[in-house]
Design a protein around this nucleic acid. Structure first.
Length: 598
RNA sequence: UGCCCGAUGGUGUAAUGGUAGCACAAACGACUCUGACUCGUUUUGUCUAGGUUCGAGUCCUAGUCGGGCAGCCA
């Protein structure tokens, strides 16, 4: 934010600590002193960028940690190397840190660079544990792939206990044997191999003796279970590919269900919070941990409903399609619901946090109106953003009673929301630009703005009267000629004269040109995800680019600052394309416009 | 047609057997050198049917509707 900004209210109102069924459960565990410290985790797979739905999960997990003096680990659930990339791990880490900055960074758990779980003895039993550290140059996020060796050991232990076996069924046959939701599956013919044979085969899987898909390691549970995830789920598959983090050490990779619960355990996670679709996986989560005779308290899984926001998509797969299809300019296109897109658009992190915690945490599959999000954004920006004058669609207006070169000094308020608002000088000149929308030759009913023979106030300057219109040969309006009543300026005798309309303006001789990108919602329907083809409901007018006239002081705008262009909306310099020589602004959001609605 | 989960105004959520509240949205009004902000007023709700209870949004039973689960994805 600008250094010239005085202290101002960044947050509108202190929101009370949220409550929900998960926080209630955690509170009970705290009261019963079941854990020495509450430890949660945010575990994205690095196969795409984070979006607003992830923001909800981040704020829940970090919120749980900060409200209970606990920690929240950032962990990459990177068990499927074919879909993942370091580009994503870096982007995700940056997004998380941006979102929690100034709010929960003190809870963010990283681990020493390169660290792996260390062997220890607890209650006479062998154990592995990896403690968190604060983020620093010597630290990095957690990676499930750092646990491959430990996970392999746990798999061997399961085999020794007769609870896992190597299966030679092909992927197709495995599928056929699994049955269907209403029909039980059949036991694999390889289900009863001896422990010794399983141990030998599993070691040879790791050694790379078999091709992809030839064998798998499976948990031995119950092929007739009504819960499909208990029908001897796969624990390991063979994949002869290198891993973006683990390198080329492995050709077998654990699956989510096996890796996740144990990763939680290894890090000392107490509450493993995920979305509803994993509800049916919870018995498996508990089965794996319960089958290994682990000495420390076990983590537990809790599920909540993911965020659905009207007119937006929260699906990495579909968002990736928008990027690949060049529908948008990239993952951080300001129209994208990605965290990086929202940031580039100018959404303040506290506003995003307010929104995602405000919608609450339940198990109800809801669709939140876009207005709720917009309200949070405007709330924060209203207090934080300096006011400036800018004209998006300019039309020239000449003040005929001012001499060319004459300047009339005016004073503009930077933010009327401040307790002690600061001001800046503004110069009124003979030629100015006003918004084309602020003049109507044939005004509609209840039109407060400028019209032939009408009067209007130029904000921070004086009242003007429209005397004459100048048109070109084709009849198009090229110039509006007015007279200025300088006695209506602040401090002048007629300063208090009222007119119905006040409009913004920019001096034609003291202004800068800028590219301004006007964003609208990306989709034309409230539920693009419900569409047979979501690409068909992309809003063709989601981006309009104009060349605007900005007041001169905006020439020094910095990336990261937000401004309210008065009567228009909130704008921020584009993080990628803006420069002092060639200013580029993004419109974050418009002001509420009750007139336009009528 | 198997299993799991859910249902409170237009939307999201609170009420943990005891006055159905909050926010957003909407409508109207006040204020206004931003048709913004702010302030005031108003409208709208416990899925259905039974049961337990002095008392049920909350507990029980059945139904209805909605969501999830059959990747060697997460």
């Amino acid at each position: 934010m600008s250094a010239e900004n005085p202290a101002r209210s960044d947050a509108p109102a202190p929101t009370p600590a949220p409550t929900d069924f998960i926080r209630d459960l955690v509170a009970q565990d705290v009261a019963a002193q079941r854990y020495p410290q509450i430890v949660t985790r945010f575990p994205p797979e690095p196969n795409g960028y984070l979006h607003i739905g992830h923001a909800k999960s981040i704020c829940l997990n970090f919120g749980l940690a900060r409200e209970n003096q606990g920690r929240c680990h950032l962990r990459f659930d990177d068990t499927n190397p074919v879909k993942e990339d370091v580009e994503y791990v870096e982007a995700i880490a940056a997004d998380v840190r941006w979102l929690v900055a100034g709010w929960a960074d003190h809870c963010l758990g990283y681990k020493p660079k390169g660290a792996h779980p260390a062997a220890q003895t607890v209650a006479g039993k062998n154990d592995f544990y990896l403690a968190s550290v604060a983020p620093s140059d010597a630290a990095e996020p957690f990676f499930a792939s750092d646990y491959f060796e430990a996970l392999y050991g746990y798999a061997v232990e399961l085999i020794k206990r007769g609870l896992a076996y190597v299966c030679d069924l092909s992927p197709e046959d495995t599928d056929a044997y699994r049955g269907s939701p209403d029909k039980p599956g059949r036991n694999s013919p390889f289900r009863d191999r001896s422990v010794a044979e399983n141990l030998d085969l599993f070691a040879r899987m790791r050694a790379g003796e078999f091709p992809n898909g030839a064998r798998s390691l499976r948990a031995k549970i119950d092929m007739a279970s009504p819960n499909i995830w208990l029908r001897d789920p796969l624990l390991y598959r063979i994949r002869h590919v290198p891993h973006h983090h683990a390198g080329d050490k492995w050709c077998i990779y654990p699956l989510y269900d096996f890796a996740h619960c144990l990763s939680d355990y290894l890090e000392g996670i107490t509450h493993s919070v995920c979305t509803l679709e994993f509800e049916v996986h919870r018995p498996l989560y508990d089965w794996i941990l319960g089958s290994l005779d682990l000495p420390r308290p076990l983590p537990h899984q809790y599920e909540f409903a993911k965020l659905n926001l009207a007119y937006t998509l929260v699906s990495k797969r579909k968002l990736l399609a928008l990027v690949n299809g060049k529908v948008v300019a990239g993952w951080d296109d300001p129209r994208m619901p990605t965290i990086s897109g929202l940031r580039r658009r100018g959404i303040p992190a506290p506003a995003l946090r307010d929104f995602v915690t405000g919608v609450g945490v339940t198990k109800f599959d809801s669709l939140t109106e876009a207005a709720v999000f917009e309200n949070c954004v405007r709330n924060h920006l209203n207090g934080a953003a300096q006011r400036r004058l800018a004209v998006l669609k300019p039309i020239k207006l000449v003040l005929t009673n001012l001499a060319p070169g004459e300047t009339v000094a005016c004073t503009a308020t930077n933010n009327p929301q401040d307790e002690n608002p600061t001001t800046r000088p503004l110069a009124l000149t003979r030629e100015v630009y006003i918004e084309a929308d602020d003049f109507a030759e044939v005004p509609p009913p209840k039109y407060f703005r400028l019209k032939p023979g009408g009067e209007v106030r130029l904000k921070y300057a004086c009242i003007i009267k429209c005397e004459e219109l100048v048109k070109d040969a084709a009849g198009a309006l090229v110039e509006i000629r007015c007279t200025a009543d300088l006695t209506t300026r602040t401090g002048q005798p007629n300063a208090d004269r009222k007119v119905k309309g006040t409009i913004h303006w920019v001096s034609a001789t003291q202004c800068v040109d800028a590219e301004v990108r006007l964003y609208d919602r990306l989709f034309t329907v409230p539920e693009p995800a419900a569409e047979e083809d979501f690409l068909k409901v992309v809003n063709p007018k989601s981006l309009e680019t104009v060349t605007a006239k900005l007041e001169a002081s905006l020439a020094s705008a910095q990336v990261g600052e937000s401004f309210q262009f008065e009567r228009l909306g909130y704008f921020t310099p584009d993080a990628k394309d803006h420069s002092a020589a060639k200013p580029v602004f993004n419109r974050t959001i418009t002001l509420k416009d009750t007139w336009a609605k009528a």
